[in-house]
């Protein structure tokens, strides 16, 4: 085994947010740098992995992309169990999705692992820009940048506005999480040794960098 592999860290990351805010699209952009207009709805949850190098760390993101339909919310505790990171996604053109995001943040703070790193993501940034001029289209944005920032500050979250369609800020949010993760894991490992949540894969088989295994959907 090459030495970088010994540094590989598995990070369980869960995406939460209202239906059709672009959770699956963010993952698709991150994992295969692709975008689809009519993506199939996620039943239960989709599972994908992506490996990347951040600084001197090799990180394997194990991404649980959850279904957004309200009633599937009851299933999400299954997925955010032991998650080390979460993306709470809303659509900056849909105020209701922001309210929902607020709820998800509270839910995670109350129920998820203590050290979970949460990023608040306002997606569909592209919809607020005129594709020709690149200027903001008046009235297209329904959740202001400040509102997002304020919530992030209040709740101690990372914050990004992004576009899965153009790729804006997508890699950045995963990288930032990746940068923060090792600290959290290092701290954790002092107290509890390799039990449960943090699987440090010492002998990970060499796989394709992009290993897409969607959960049977």
């Amino acid at each position: 085994m090459s030495s970088p592999a010994t540094n590989q860290i598995s990070v369980k990351l869960v995406l939460l947010g209202e239906a059709a805010v672009g959770k699956s699209s963010l993952v698709l952009r991150f994992v295969s740098n692709d975008f689809e207009e009519n993506k199939e709805p996620t039943i239960g949850a989709a599972f994908l992995t992506q490996r990347c190098t951040i600084g001197d760390k090799y990180i394997k993101f194990e991404i649980w992309d959850t279904a957004g339909q309200e009633r599937f919310a009851n299933l999400t505790p299954l997925y955010y169990r032991n998650a080390q990171a979460a993306l709470v996604v809303y659509d900056i053109t849909k105020p209701a999705s922001f309210i929902k995001a607020r709820h998800w943040v509270k839910e995670l703070h109350e129920q998820a692992s203590k050290n979970i790193i949460i990023a608040l993501v306002g997606n569909k940034y592209d919809l607020t820009l005129d594709s020709e001029t690149g200027e903001e289209i008046e009235g297209s944005r329904k959740v202001s940048l400040e509102e997002g920032q304020n919530l992030a500050e209040e709740e101690n979250l990372l914050f990004f506005e992004s576009s899965a369609k153009t790729g804006y800020n997508v890699n950045e949010m995963f990288t930032t999480i990746g940068e923060k993760i090792p600290e959290a894991i290092a701290k954790k490992d002092n107290t509890r040794d390799q039990s449960g949540g943090n699987r440090i894969d010492l002998n990970a088989p060499a796989e394709n960098d992009i290993h897409d295994s969607s959960c049977s959907c």
Binding site: I43, G44, A45, L78, Y79, R81, N82, C215
Partner: peptide
């Protein structure tokens, strides 16, 4: 190995 079968099998049952 902390593998939760139910999250894998859920879509099988649901559809």
């Amino acid at each position: 190995h902390d593998i939760q079968l139910s999250i894998v099998s859920l879509p099988w049952f649901l559809s």
